[in-house]
Design a protein around this nucleic acid. Structure first.
Lengths: 185, 185
DNA sequence: ACAGCCATGTAACTCGTTACATGATTAC
DNA sequence: GTAATCATGTAACGAGTTACATGGCTGT
């Protein structure tokens, strides 16, 4: 029973479970882009369809194809087995330490090679990108208001969103600190 | 000439460039485990050897095999072309936004499924792991003292190490904040 | 003698990406 | 009418992992 699925499969199951909606692959990609991408990767479209196919074969999601004008559109909903698989995964497997591939720090490490100016610009760019990510995420966070209290369905998502907001603010601060030391010793 | 290499290849080149030493694949893995792993992944041994083979074929590292008792041990050093490739990579390509796969946040997002107790224990575990990472990293940081001033060879590594120390402290704080809201609304 | 570390590699496999291909619907 | 968006997939490929295989060296 404990299907050996990649984490991304459970992320998709989780998105389907959150609002208990039936979503198309395309819609799932949009949800992933607007929420998942901040603390997990947003999978490529092709992978979403691949994963949905596998989840359907395993009976963890149910596909329902309906005509939409001249074309057919397939929507997916999580099944009872899917829910069990998700809770089972949450309960049994350990999360492991988060994986970070910090391209900015990697380049900062090798700051001796190459133009100091360029390193500073890279860090300034990163500060700006963190601010942008924070803005995008705070829009998502606003959308959770009203259902973000304990017991409500967006309580846990709001915890994660606030975590993310702090995270990006802190990262910008880390970069600013490094910049300051680069400039003023 | 701008060889199309994975970032990991440049990470290895960077490690070889840092102290300008000749290292075996095994030693490279140890360096990666003790430094790179905090803000990049520490590649598997097999990948290090694979990557070293490719870098050698491209002339970016030089392999020198010497007898060590009855066996042969191969050490690698970065070449002039390797240095150029590294600075070229730093100068030409953009770092892109760091990739984070935050398994803890992913599970927290789906906190509704599954045992609340378990979620809390997961977060407590994460706080402890962050503290452990911070301890490990601060040992590394101590090793940089004395050569960590501007102009010295461990200046940039010390910036990254301090960034990491702040990072893990902040992450522990984020987790504590989430825990508090889980417990006290 | 035996465990644990040092050292090197190959093979099979999975995840996930980019590129490619197709076509309907909607808004201007 | 035409561009953007909605919608769905396949194929080729690459990075990176685990498992497997081998064997020397070192400390007890």
């Amino acid at each position: 029973m404990p299907h050996n699925l990649p984490v991304t499969a459970f992320a998709i199951l989780g998105l389907l479970a959150l609002d208990d909606e039936t979503l198309t692959g395309y819609e799932l990609k949009q949800r992933a882009d607007s929420t998942l991408r901040f603390y997990w990767v947003s999978p490529a479209m092709s992978q979403i369809y691949t994963e949905l196919g596998r989840l359907t074969r395993y009976g963890l999601v149910r596909a329902s194809t309906e005509p939409d004008g001249a074309r057919e559109v397939t929507s997916y909903a999580i099944t009872e087995e899917g829910r069990e698989a998700l809770t089972g995964w949450m309960g049994r497997s350990a999360p492991g330490f988060p994986v970070l591939k910090h391209s900015v720090c990697l380049r900062l490490l090798m700051g001796d090679m190459g133009d100091p100016e360029r390193i500073e610009r890279m860090l300034e760019g990163y500060v700006a990108e963190c601010a942008a990510a924070r803005r995008d995420l705070s829009l998502v966070r606003e959308g959770l208001r009203g259902r973000d209290q304990p017991g409500q369905d967006y309580f846990h998502p709001s915890l994660v969103a606030d975590w993310g907001l702090d995270y990006f603010a802190d990262e910008a601060e880390h970069a600013r600190r490094a910049l300051d030391r680069l400039r003023n010793g």
